[in-house]
Amino acid sequence: MLDDRARMEAAKKEKVEQILAEFQLQEEDLKKVMRRMQKEMDRGLRLETHEEASVKMLPTYVRSTPEGSEVGDFLSLDLGGTNFRVMLVKVGEGEEGQWSVKTKHQMYSIPEDAMTGTAEMLFDYISECISDFLDKHQMKHKKLPLGFTFSFPVRHEDIDKGILLNWTKGFKASGAEGNNVVGLLRDAIKRRGDFEMDVVAMVNDTVATMISCYYEDHQCEVGMIVGTGCNACYMEEMQNVELVEGDEGRMCVNTEWGAFGDSGELDEFLLEYDRLVDESSANPGQQLYEKLIGGKYMGELVRLVLLRLVDENLLFHGEASEQLRTRGAFETRFVSQVESDTGDRKQIYNILSTLGLRPSTTDCDIVRRACESVSTRAAHMCSAGLAGVINRMRESRSEDVMRITVGVDGSVYKLHPSFKERFHASVRRLTPSCEITFIESEEGSGRGAALVSAVACKKACMLGQ
């Protein structure tokens, strides 16, 4: 009897593995994704193909990295998701002549009506938060230079001027797309009239992360975010950046690689679950690469896999709870928690219980395998993109072996128990001629924006502006 049951459990697990095998990517698959990513990057950089390229390769006008001589107080704003952060950054000489960066910050959550109302409502709310922060720190009387981390696709015309191309991540505030974001912020500050600010720089969160990590390690020339969304930036040779005049030196390019796949480059790798996630998203047909990796989508992918296993009578005796059938019910943090389970399955059992399920031991094991399959594919897909960037940098610099540091931020990278190990191992397999160091950014977005502002202020002083 026991043997029969054991055989049935083994057969069930084997069927589960057959279904989950769809998520496995072979090294040849990853090399294919990497080569296609490089081709799209090239198209994004070139003037004649930029418009139709899915990977936009947006110039950021960040050319210099901090040298350690900029000092002063800077205000930093960070808008990239449902939370908005205001930070005071003091850049100065530390002990023994070292450079020191001290920060104080406060988080504000953005109400739904500000995210989806008008641009005026959104930026009025942001300036209200700045006003509140300055009151708390008794700094209303000071006109501070301000660095703005704005983590949406922007076409820069200068370091302090950028046109919002399109909202992502659930934002829909009308009247912002096609307009200068810094102008919208300046107008809102003017409307309030109770404080003055000098907006000197606007950067993407990947750029802010790279600059913040450069402060720790001067070989950091790539910034990457794996959180709600997924994106990367890197220092490109100016001669390859056709959208900006000049051939000397390097400029940081914001790849906006989340949109890779929007022209069909990933079609052969998309599964039924991916198509369902895409169809029910706020932007169907867009940001397809990001939807395979980002935390906004990972939990939902797992939920759809679990429903398939229920329908195949391989999980929960073929019956799903009402909660499990509800879109968004299986949160991405559950994926991390399930994979963090120590082996007694308590954590998995508790999560499934909150979803109205009474799982068996085998159910718990199957749910864990589903989570591992989805998150491992995410790590491997992400590795193909980064390997594409790094191999490109090595080739354009004609280096036999390139040493490089990548600064990384984002909740999936930082909080998932195995993502970074799987990701690092896969990147290294795909970049055999590179020695890569990964560092995690601390308060990256805010500190990085302030350091970019410090560079901009120093330049302005040198130019006598």
Rank of each mutant, 00 (worst) to 15 (best):
P359T: 08
G318D: 12
R345M: 10
S340H: 11
E128C: 14
L430P: 04
E395L: 12
F419C: 04
M235L: 09
L288K: 11
E112K: 08
F316S: 15
A449T: 02
F74P: 01
D267W: 10
D400I: 14
M210L: 06
F150M: 03
V406D: 06
A259D: 02
F316E: 02
A6I: 08
F419P: 06
I130L: 07
N180Q: 02
V55N: 06
L301D: 04
H380C: 12
S396H: 12
T361D: 05
T362W: 13
P153I: 01
K420C: 06
L304V: 10
D311V: 09
C220V: 14
K15F: 14
D124G: 06
V154G: 03
L30C: 07
E236P: 02
R345L: 13
E322G: 14
S375N: 13
T168D: 02
V455D: 13
C371H: 02
T332E: 01
M87S: 07
F269Y: 06
L165H: 00
M41A: 07
D365E: 12
R63Y: 14
E95D: 11
R43P: 02
L88Y: 10
F150H: 04
Y289W: 07
R369Q: 13
G246A: 03
S212V: 03
L30E: 12
K104L: 13
D341F: 10
V241A: 08
W257M: 14
R43H: 07
R377Y: 00
D3F: 12
I211D: 04
A188G: 06
K142D: 07
S131P: 01
V277G: 07
M139N: 06
V389E: 04
F269T: 03
S441T: 13
L451R: 02
S212W: 09
Y125N: 03
E95P: 08
M210I: 06
V91Q: 06
D29K: 09
V412G: 04
K13V: 11
N180S: 01
I366F: 09
V101C: 12
V226R: 02
S453G: 15
R85W: 01
S174A: 03
T209K: 01
F269C: 08
M37H: 02
S100K: 10
E265F: 00
R368D: 13
E128Y: 13
T332G: 07
D73A: 05
D400L: 10
E237P: 09
V203K: 00
I211T: 15
G117T: 13
K190A: 14
S69A: 10
D217I: 00
K161P: 01
C364I: 15
Y349P: 12
G81M: 04
D267V: 09
L324I: 10
D158Y: 02
D344R: 10
T82H: 03
A208M: 08
H424T: 09
I189D: 03
S453M: 02
C233M: 03
R192K: 06
S453Y: 05
I189E: 00
P153D: 03
L20E: 06
G285E: 09
G117K: 06
S375Y: 05
S54R: 09
E242Y: 09
C371T: 14
M197E: 01
G444L: 05
S398P: 13
M402Y: 11
M121T: 08
K420T: 07
I19L: 14
K161A: 13
T437S: 11
Q337P: 11
S373L: 07
E339I: 11
E221C: 05
N83M: 07
L415E: 03
V305F: 14
M8L: 09
L386A: 11
M107W: 06
M238E: 15
C457A: 13
A21Q: 14
V305S: 15
E17H: 11
G258A: 01
L20W: 09
L357P: 06
M34V: 09
F152H: 02
G385W: 05
S281Y: 10
K414V: 15
F334P: 09
A259N: 07
T376E: 13
C461Y: 12
R394N: 11
S281D: 10
F152V: 03
S131H: 01
V182R: 03
A449F: 00
M139V: 08
M202G: 02
E435D: 13
K291V: 01
L25E: 05
I436P: 08
I225E: 00
